[in-house]
């Protein structure tokens, strides 16, 4: 077990290293100089070739790529100093570089944007389960009924629509057209300084869009798993013992059925934390996803690199945790 976790950690670490190298190389060998965006940002049309060279020199882009990559990695662990031409900034560990836009350490901004992304992820994921599991169980219990068929086909229909269009329409109708009270003031507000109501109202539509769309998958999984579980022998035994139907379904059936659902849930939650670009873009939530989108637009390279790395780390960790948890939940699985 322990050996398995170590093995997975090593391979995850390797993946993160490769991803970071790929991102680093991409900018380095991209068509224009990696210092060009910051030079443009600061100098506008006065970013003449000589000045660009000065930026490249101060940012180390005249060194070989492996030296600079080494510095980047070292910065993550011990921090480093970064110079934009003559201006030197201190970037404390864990240093992912300085944003070209704000000249603030990327790590700080990442941390400051985390609450928004976590809020979206927690609320959305909560709705996945809250809606998906009970509906799935109910459908499984009434398997074959008209209600079940209607539900399954309508959810199939819904989940076949591209998500971002669903979210876009939710936003257009509720916010723009109908100007629904409270919830139409979309965006992320701090629950502490702006008040919980504003926080809730700002995120509500994003949660609903994510939740309704995502729960269709969970309904399908839960329903499928429940159908399978309810046909197992031990359920028949439990029924034969004369246990109440409720106990049989929830105590015995659901428990077994939830194992695969929890697995998928863990991975989904990880990918939500990795940044929900469409959700954040459409509902104007200043989280990690929107930030990365803006950074790509501004060519804020350190931010792009950092968000990409962050997403990769989130995905790897959620996968690892899920695999470990799964082995506890289902003793049939042996990790090796």
């Amino acid at each position: 077990m322990f050996a398995y976790i170590v093995k997975r950690l090593i391979s995850g670490f390797l993946v993160v290293t490769l991803v970071s190298m790929a991102v680093f190389a991409l900018f380095w060998y991209g068509p224009s100089s990696p210092a060009k965006p910051i030079c443009d940002r600061e100098q506008g049309v006065r970013c003449i070739p000589e000045r660009l060279v000065a930026y490249e020199k101060s940012l180390g882009y005249d060194n070989p790529i492996y030296t600079e990559y080494g510095k980047f990695v070292k910065g993550i662990f011990v921090g480093r100093e970064i110079a934009f031409r003559t201006d030197v900034y201190q970037c404390d560990a864990p240093c992912l570089g300085l944003s070209y836009n704000t000249k603030q350490p990327v790590t700080h901004e990442l941390v400051s944007r985390l609450p928004a992304t976590i809020s979206v992820a927690v609320g959305g994921a909560f709705l996945y389960l809250l809606l998906g599991v009970p509906i799935g169980v109910a459908a499984a219990r009434r398997r074959g009924s008209v209600a079940d068929k209607a539900l399954v086909s309508s959810f199939l229909f819904l989940s076949s629509i591209p998500y971002y269009l669903f979210a876009l329409l939710t936003w257009l109708y509720l916010t723009v057209l109908w100007e629904a009270p409270v919830v139409s003031d979309v965006g992320y507000f701090s629950p502490f300084s702006d008040g919980p109501l504003k926080w809730f109202g700002g995120l509500f539509l994003a949660w609903v869009a994510l939740g309704i769309f995502g729960c269709t998958q969970y309904t399908r999984y839960t329903r499928g798993a429940m159908v399978e579980a309810l046909s197992e022998d031990y359920i028949r035994t439990a029924k034969a013992k004369g246990l109440p139907a409720r106990t049989v379904v929830y105590r015995h059936g659901l428990r077994a059925a939830l194992v695969p659902v929890v697995t998928i849930f863990g991975i989904d939650f990880g990918s939500l934390l990795a940044g929900t670009i469409f959700t954040e873009r459409i509902f104007e939530i200043q989280g990690i996803g929107y930030w990365s989108l803006q950074a790509v637009g501004n060519k804020d390279l350190p931010v792009v690199a950092a968000t990409t790395l962050f997403s990769a780390v989130m995905l790897i960790f959620s996968n690892l945790i899920v695999d470990v948890v799964y082995s506890f939940l289902d003793p049939r699985v042996r990790l090796s």
């Binding site: 068509p31 224009s32 060009k36 443009d40 506008g44 049309v45 970013c47 003449i48 070739p49």
Partner: peptide, 13 residues
Amino acid sequence: VQVSPYDIWLNPD
């Protein structure tokens, strides 16, 4: 072009 047109217009090389 994917960069500001000025980058190109003002660069004689």
